[in-house]
């Protein structure tokens, strides 16, 4: 007992160059404990607000151009409490939901069909690829001519900003469904419609929902562009009004609000994924 102890002591003390396995701070794909996860995230946020606050406190930037974080928080509260900002937020959320849902309704079924059948891909893909390269905002003048400044023009911009990408991504995910899985269903007696409905759709759904979550972020971008361009309500419109009166705090409150909503939607999607696709193998 004591003998073995002393040998261990001798080797570890004497031979410092011996290659010992140790945990390094950065390890490839190694999961970390939850407390560390939260801590690391917080550190960066605290740093962010700290530097921001410092910058305003020492007067690097005039407060009317860069208000302090607490001033922005106060403004956000005021906007909600006495300036009817809730209506703007709801209008924006409504626009996102309606046009994003419309884009999904078109893109998901068509993307699945394009990924399943080469002929359908050959029909639509040239068109879809071309449209994907056209920046959606370049349609704003046209949309304004066609639909004026009412809701339709905003919904349309969001729709064309999202639908082509969504379609392509869904198509690619559908192509990745294992051929053997489809062939198995065929040799079990499934017809093409049954294969689509009972094999391909459930097989791609997890990836489709992930793609939807990612595309939703893009949808927010187009929403704000649309509302900044021409709108009387919505978060973007509020920010444009604020700009006219040089209220940087209100603009920043709008940005914060968009960030919070983005996080919220992202979280909702993740919960949905966890509930719907709990059967999935973790990778």
């Amino acid at each position: 007992m004591s003998g073995s102890d002393s040998t261990i002591a001798a080797t570890s003390a004497g031979d410092t160059a011996s290659p010992r396995r140790r945990e390094r701070w950065l390890e490839f794909k190694k999961p970390i404990p939850t407390w560390e996860l939260i801590l690391l995230g917080l550190i960066v946020w605290v740093l962010f607000f700290g530097i921001w606050k410092l910058a305003t406190a020492v007067g690097w930037a005039p407060p009317f151009l860069l208000p302090a974080p607490d001033a922005v928080a106060m403004t956000l509260y005021e906007l909600f409490a006495s300036r009817g900002f809730l209506m703007d937020v709801l209008v924006s959320v409504y626009r996102i939901i309606v046009s994003f849902a419309a884009a999904c309704l078109i893109a998901v079924p068509l993307g699945i069909l394009m990924g399943s059948f080469s002929r359908i891909e050959a029909l639509f893909n040239p068109l879809v690829s071309a449209w994907r390269y056209l920046p959606a905002p370049s349609f704003i003048p046209l949309l304004l001519m066609w639909f004026g400044t009412d809701d339709t023009s905003k919904l349309a911009l969001l729709f064309i900003g999202v639908v082509w990408f969504l379609m392509t991504l869904v198509m690619d995910h559908t192509k990745a469904v294992k051929t053997e899985v489809i062939q198995t269903a065929l040799t079990l007696g499934a017809n093409r419609w049954q294969v689509l409905r009972t094999v391909i759709v459930p097989a791609v759904m997890p990836n489709v929902v992930i793609t939807m979550r990612q595309m939703l972020a893009a949808a927010w971008t187009y929403l704000v562009i649309a509302e900044i361009m021409a709108a009387t309500d919505g978060i973007g419109a509020m920010m444009m009004r604020a700009k006219r009166f040089i209220h940087a705090d209100e603009i920043m409150a709008g940005i914060v609000m968009i960030g919070v909503l983005g996080l919220l939607f992202d979280y909702l999607f993740r919960v949905l994924e966890r509930i719907l696709f709990s059967y999935q193998e973790e990778t």
């Binding site: 053997e180 899985v181 198995t184 999935q280």
Partner: peptide, 14 residues
């Protein structure tokens, strides 16, 4: 009437 089993795993995960 001609069911096939493949080398790749084909059980439907859902």
């Amino acid at each position: 009437e001609r069911g096939m089993v493949f080398q790749a795993y084909t059980s439907f995960p859902w």
